[in-house]
Simulated scan of single mutants.
Amino acid sequence: MSSTGLEGKSVIVTGAASGIGRASALKFAWEGARVLVADLDRTGAEQTAKEIEETGGQALAAVGDLSDRQVVEQVVQRAVAAFGGVEVLVNNAGIMDRMSALGETEDAEWERVIRINLTAPFLLTRAVLPHMLAAGRGSIVFTASEAGLRGSAAGAAYTASKHGVIGLVKNLAVMYRKQGIRANAIAPGPTSTNIQVDAGAEAHGPAVIGQLIGANIGRLGSAEEQAAAIVFLASDAASFVNGAVLAVDDGWAAV
C-alpha cells in the first residue's frame, strides 16, 4: 500500500492530456489513486486514461472547456458518480500569453488567458468544495508559475493570472482549513512541456522578458519533476502544509 495515503483516493487532474498534467495523472495512478483525466484534447486525455488502465489503474477521460460552468459541473458529477466523491483536485490546465507588455496586450489575449488560467480553476474548485466539505477533508493543488512570484517571467496577462492563482490558494487555505481542506500550489520554472509561446518578434514585452529570463534561470525541468511536487502536496506527507507556494525551479526564485 502506498505510504502517501493516496491509495483509493478520487482525483481530478486538469490539463492531463500532456505535460505536467499527464505526468501527474500517471503518478497519482501509480500511487493507487483513481483518476479523472480532464482536458480539451480528447485524443490526449483518452490516451492518458488508457495508459493508466493498461498498467492496472482506474481512470476516466473527461473532455471539455473547463472555463464553461456546465462542463465543470459535468466533470465533477462524473467523478462523484464513478468514484464516490472528489478527494483531490489538481488545477493544472493553463496557457501562456504572447509575452506581451501591458500596453501591447489586446482584449482577446487578456480575456483568454484569464479565463483559462484563473476563471476555470475558480469554477472547478467551487464545484468540488461541497463534496470535500461533506467529507470533511480534501486537498487542492494548483499549478501557479514562477510568473506568480515575480514580474519578469511572462507577459502582463499570464503574470496577472498566476498572481491571481496564488491569491486564490492563500484565501482558500485560510477559509477552509478548519473544515479539513488544504490548498497549495507549485510554481514551476522552465519545464519541458508542449505549452506554446506565440511571441511577437518585434514586440516590447518579449524583448524585455527574454533578456531577464536568459540571465536568471537554471536548467530545464521535466514534467515528472513537477508532478512529484504536486503529488507530494496532495498526499498525507504534506498534511500540515496549507497555503504554501512551492517553487520547483532549480533555484530561480532564489535569484
Rank of each mutant, 00 (worst) to 15 (best):
E146S: 11
L172F: 08
S67Q: 11
I209H: 13
R126I: 01
A228N: 14
V241N: 01
F232K: 03
N216T: 14
A237T: 00
N184I: 06
Q226V: 01
E106Y: 07
E146N: 03
D236S: 08
D65E: 09
M96K: 08
A207P: 08
G94P: 03
M132D: 05
A61Y: 11
V241L: 08
L26N: 01
I140M: 07
G164I: 11
L149Y: 11
G103S: 10
Y176H: 15
M132H: 05
M175N: 13
A29W: 04
P188R: 01
E31S: 07
A183L: 06
I52S: 10
R98P: 10
D97W: 09
R98Q: 15
E53V: 15
A201S: 07
T4M: 01
H131W: 14
N91K: 04
V165G: 05
V113I: 10
G164R: 09
F83D: 04
V72F: 01
A135I: 06
R78S: 13
K27R: 15
A108D: 15
G205Q: 08
T48D: 04
F83Y: 15
A29R: 05
A229F: 02
A61D: 14
E109K: 02
A25M: 00
A120K: 00
A154F: 03
L212M: 14
T193K: 06
D39I: 02
A215V: 03
S100I: 05
D68E: 08
K27T: 05
L233Y: 09
A25I: 02
F122H: 05
G15W: 00
L118Y: 06
I186G: 00
T193Q: 05
M1T: 00
K162Q: 09
I230T: 06
A62V: 04
S10A: 15
R112M: 09
V37T: 08
A157T: 12
H131P: 04
S222Q: 10
V197E: 02
S24V: 00
I140Q: 04
I186W: 01
L6C: 01
T55W: 00
G84L: 12
G167P: 02
R22M: 05
A45E: 08
D39K: 03
G21M: 08
A120D: 01
G243N: 12
S100L: 10
L124R: 06
G56E: 12
G200D: 09
H163S: 11
Q70K: 10
Q58T: 15
A79Y: 10
G15N: 00
V245D: 06
V128Q: 05
G214L: 11
R126S: 02
D236Q: 13
V169L: 14
A199D: 00
G189E: 14
A228V: 02
F142C: 07
V113R: 06
G32P: 08
E224K: 03
E111Y: 00
P206F: 11
G19D: 07
L26M: 13
R137A: 11
A144K: 09
G21I: 05
V37S: 09
L40G: 11
M175P: 00
D250L: 09
G243M: 11
R98S: 15
